[in-house]
Design a protein around this nucleic acid. Structure first.
Length: 422
RNA sequence: GCGAUUGUAGCUCAGGUGGUUAGAGUGCCAGGUUGUGGCCCUGGAGGUCGUCGGUUCAAGUCCGAUCAGUCGCCCCA
């Protein structure tokens, strides 16, 4: 876990609220241009929701959930991912019937009880989209394109890995074929590989163990077991991606860790991120809505890791386009007369009311130190008020970068600041 | 859940073989006449040495345990 701070720290300069807002804004603008609407769901959900959707046997459900029993004896879980809660909410509020084609986006916190590591936190934020009600491969292309352009438009280079895990039938047939192929060499497989052979054979493909890779090198590919329909859909997706110039590579070993995926699956990998290099991932989950008690509605989506995105930007030395947090004007008072201070306070509020970011010192600093404070907060203009000005109802306006200074009526200074010129 | 590694001011780090009131740089605060900033000069505050226990006349330093961080495995965002 970590704190997101208002100022960069030496240890983790990427962890600032300004950067977070910049990324969130970038994401929002992108998905809203593509017609997505925001959904926000609670952090807590019934544990059952995740068991049914993600799958009992998955790592997430079996060992990584923050689960507890509440005072009413219900088992609640802090959401480990955003899709199932979104599906639950849409069913509950009949959004699928009201909006047969539903395009949603979310920005939310997820919780997984894992060992911390670079780019992996027990509480992490995901930026995601979900599209319900369309099986057209063009939608798959849209979702993948959104995820990719999110990164490329930020200047992060990344690789798109895609695969198709087909329908339940395809996977069942493939699972048998794969087991039959591996069985003779089972004893030579790593401990981990042997365990997966029993529990979840498809996951054997997702290994980094050299021996296992050697054994699996000649194994049949899941792609060869896809039904004609799944196969065609996957081909269409590739054609669309090619048409819109999104580079991709087919990764036969890409098998994701949630049980609800069907058909298209993908992962986006970045560079310079250490072991946790998945920037985002997702896929199609056509049976999920039904599984959660809704109608047969097709769906697909992706999740992008906020922290990994920020880390990737940091590794590349890219600062996201952040909004300016510095005030336009900083008011400085000379002399200790109460009239001066009162004139300054009056001016401060009239500037803010006029929509100008303005600030002043409240620590009773001397004249010289007020300038230092103004420099620290990065103001563009100094506004100086002394006894003479307070008496005349004027101020001195000084440009910090040029050093130029002119006297203005207190009433007209807002206008000068708005034009940004003396 | 497993493995490796680190823990001394806000931050980056010094502190041979144990030995008085634990240091530097930087940052912070103040002063250098509250009428002109960035620089500079001077001064100041700030540390139960991660925590607990042990060895010793004596522990930041040696030993054990524990906690936290980091990195990796697993898995994923």
């Amino acid at each position: 876990m970590y704190d997101v701070l208002p100022y960069p720290s030496a240890k983790e300069p990427w962890l600032t609220t300004a950067r977070w807002r910049a990324i969130e804004r970038h994401f929002r603008e992108m998905v809203m241009r593509a017609g997505y609407r925001e959904i926000r769901t609670p952090i807590l959900e019934p544990t059952e929701l995740f068991k049914r959707s993600i799958g009992e046997a998955t790592d997430i459900v079996s060992k990584e959930m923050f689960t507890f029993v509440d005072r009413g004896d219900r088992s609640l879980t802090m959401k480990p991912e955003g899709t199932a809660p979104a599906v639950r909410a849409c069913i509950e509020h009949n959004l699928f019937t009201e909006h047969p084609l539903l395009k949603l986006y979310y920005i939310g916190q997820n919780f997984r009880y894992e060992r911390g590591q670079k780019g992996r936190y027990r509480q992490h934020q995901q930026l995601g989209v979900e599209v319900f009600g369309a099986t057209d491969a063009a939608v798959d292309a849209e979702v993948l394109a959104l995820a990719m352009s999110f990164f490329t438009s930020l200047g992060v280079s990344c690789r798109l890995h895609i695969n198709s895990v087909g329908t339940t039938d395809c996977r069942t047939r493939y699972r048998e074929a794969l087991k039959a192929y591996v069985e003779p060499s089972l004893a030579n497989l790593s401990d981990e590989g042997q365990m997966r052979f029993k529990v979840n054979p498809l996951r054997m493909l997702d290994t980094k163990d050299q021996r296992d890779l050697a054994i699996l090198a000649g194994a049949p590919a899941l792609r060869e077991f896809l039904s004609e329909e799944s196969s065609l859909h996957f081909q269409q997706l590739q054609d669309y991606l090619t048409a819109i110039a999104i580079p991709f590579r087919i990764d036969d070993g890409l098998v994701r860790g949630f049980d609800y995926y069907s058909g298209t699956v993908f992962e986006i990998k970045g560079e310079g991120l250490g072991a946790q290099d998945a920037l985002g991932g997702g896929g199609r989950y056509d049976g999920l809505v039904e599984e959660c008690g809704g109608a047969a509605v097709a769906g697909l989506g992706f999740g992008i890791g906020m922290e990994r995105c920020l880390l990737a930007l940091e590794a590349l030395g890219i600062a996201p386009n952040q909004e300016d947090e510095a005030p336009v004007a900083f008011i400085i008072t000379a002399g200790s007369q109460q009239e001066v201070k009162t004139a300054a306070v009056k001016l401060l509020y009239s500037l803010r009311t006029a929509g100008i970011a303005a600030d002043m010192d409240y620590q009773g600093k001397n004249f010289r130190r007020q300038f230092k404070r103004a420099d620290d907060v990065g103001t563009r203009f100094y506004i100086i008020i002394g006894e003479d000005e307070a008496a005349k109802g004027t101020v001195q306006l000084k440009d910090r970068s040029s050093g130029e200074q002119r006297e203005f009526d207190a009433e007209s200074v807002a206008e000068a600041l708005r034009t940004g010129r003396l």
